[in-house]
Write a protein that binds this DNA or RNA. Sequence first.
DNA 1: GAAGATTGATGAATCAATCTTT
DNA 2: AAAGATTGATTCATCAATCTTC
Lengths: 171, 171
Amino acid sequence: VTDPLSFDPIREASAQWEQRWGSEPVSSMRAVTSIMRAQQILLARLNELLKPHGLTFPRYEALMILYFSRRGSLPLGKLGARLQVHPTSVTSLVDGLERSGLVRREPHSSDRRATLASITDDGREVAKAATKALNEEKFGTEPLSADDLDAVTKILATLRVDAGDFVLEAG
Amino acid sequence: VTDPLSFDPIREASAQWEQRWGSEPVSSMRAVTSIMRAQQILLARLNELLKPHGLTFPRYEALMILYFSRRGSLPLGKLGARLQVHPTSVTSLVDGLERSGLVRREPHSSDRRATLASITDDGREVAKAATKALNEEKFGTEPLSADDLDAVTKILATLRVDAGDFVLEAG
DNA sequence: GAAGATTGATGAATCAATCTTT
DNA sequence: AAAGATTGATTCATCAATCTTC
């Protein structure tokens, strides 16, 4: 998007930080900035890979949860809990998937407040094709090794537990 | 935002992935999902910490680049290169900082196409106070250790180089 | 009153198109 | 033509307020 800088901006910031505020908070600042930037890079790569399939990554994630669900459908609230996003975001994601014909809204059989998001046959086909594309490109994580990726996953799991995403299971 | 799940959704997805598509792409899928979620958690924490100072984290990042700049001002293009965001995003960030009185737009002395973003005295005060708050709370990275944070930073640097953020310097 | 979902607002990211200046 | 910045459009995230149903 722009020319590469001749230095690492995060490394540069670390030096100035340490000079002014001591060494204690530097690791935190560096890691946060790195994660923010990595997310931005990965999201751009994923959206690029998904564009031929008419999907964005957030919509892909929602579609896959429905794909893997027992009945191929889930109440919007449950979908939001799995995605860890606001009810408003679920509405917007399902709107988009519905416009593309990959998901249908259906009434809940027993609770008339609730709405089900149900994956369509088209949705299943697109889910499979898009997943093939992402798997072949390793979800845009090149050039990181499997060991490095697993290390990141393990470390960030601690943060996710602390944020209340889920409770630790036995084993 | 919702109740904690009784299982780790990423762990759950890994199992289904491996069953269907083999073990090869699982590490990538897991790491990408983890990074996306970690970014979301950290951003929420940072915005909460910055709210008393009338800042969001993206605006804070922009403000600090100006704070550390030699003259306290930078052309919008240079600011965008440092933040690694689109020109449109720079315009929007500077708009917000200008509305808060933390930054002023000034004409470039030699190039009438360019605009400078210049940090104000208020901006410097807010930058210091906000940084104090973030440092004290370790940028919302609790309960991760400094070693874990450094490990994440190091691994993700490889990705940032690959994405062309910067070129490796000697040493 | 509380739960499930939606609408309307803001903030931040992108892209395409435009406008001025070089 | 190319560079710097802006406006207008879309997507996704949040919050506050609303509406229906439990």
